[in-house]
């Protein structure tokens, strides 16, 4: 990838955006008209083509964020921190899509909006953890500190997810719960439409991620230039005192 600081060729971006928009439009059409209607649940089941892909996309985003956090701690290259925060931030809104479409589907099918089932609850906890991750980042000003500290938190959060899932799974198996979904395998057309929808969501994610990454890189550059400027203006700094780029405005 070229340096994020170079001017992006707006032509390419427009083409990519149009391509993703077209893919999303086609995926929407396929989910509504091409996929067969599910036998027992009827039309409401079509929400599944948006519900599942947004969840998967969010999980991809958090995986990227987790690996970028580890890579940052190992290499200290700022680009990994940019990737970690961008991916987390773009991933976070996909979970509410999942948590809102889920109950809309669940109300007619299960008869309730929400159940404290392992998957629902652990997704919710996962989302809260990444919201906390983003919140933590806003509360530390010094860029390097922020990168290190939030990377460590990101690693802790990622290791927590399987534990949350298993503990809630064991917890809930001791209680009555609604029967989830129809058993058996997925119809091939349904599967293809599902994968198409996922591809469209991933395309959307990729485009947003790239823009967010670029934004983070530019922010970093601005902070660096400010820091340099403030150093030049005030050459004698006490040893060990850091200059906060936000305060040096």
């Amino acid at each position: 990838m070229a340096s994020p600081l170079q001017r992006e060729r707006s032509g390419m971006l427009a083409v990519e955006t149009l391509a993703v928009a077209a893919l999303l439009g086609f995926a929407g059409y396929a989910a509504l008209f091409i996929a067969p209607t599910e036998a027992t649940m009827g039309l409401i089941q079509r929400i599944f083509y948006f519900h599942v892909p947004s969840g998967w996309t969010a999980f991809v985003a958090f995986f990227i964020s987790f690996f970028a956090s580890i890579a940052y701690l190992r290499t200290r290259a700022p680009k990994w921190d940019w990737l970690a925060v961008s991916s987390a931030e773009i991933g976070v809104p996909f979970i509410p899509v999942m948590l809102v479409t889920g109950p809309i589907w669940a109300k007619p099918v299960w008869g309730i909006w929400w159940t404290w089932d392992a998957r629902l609850t652990s997704t919710f906890v996962l989302w809260v953890l990444y919201v906390c991750y983003l919140l933590l980042r806003t509360l530390i000003d010094e860029p390097e500190r922020r990168a290190v500290v939030s990377a460590v938190f990101g690693v802790f959060a990622a290791f927590d997810v399987p534990l949350v899932y298993f503990s809630i799974w064991f917890f809930r198996t001791q209680h009555p719960q609604p029967v989830i979904g129809p058993g058996g395998s997925l119809d091939p057309t349904m599967r293809n439409v599902l994968l198409l929808c996922w591809a469209a969501m991933l395309g959307l994610f990729a485009i947003l991620l790239r823009q967010r990454y670029r934004l983070e890189a530019l922010r970093y550059e601005v902070a660096r230039i400010r820091l340099e400027g403030s150093r030049r203006a005030e050459p004698v700094l006490p040893v060990g005192k850091r200059v906060n780029p936000e305060m040096a405005k």
């Binding site: 953890l129 933590l136 509360l139 000003d141 500190r145 500290v149 938190f153 927590d160 949350v164």
Partner: peptide, 20 residues
Amino acid sequence: SQARMRELLLPLLLLPLLTP
């Protein structure tokens, strides 16, 4: 301890992670 609003931040980070 390295962030602002640290008194509020600790429960916020800690409680969801301790769910299991």
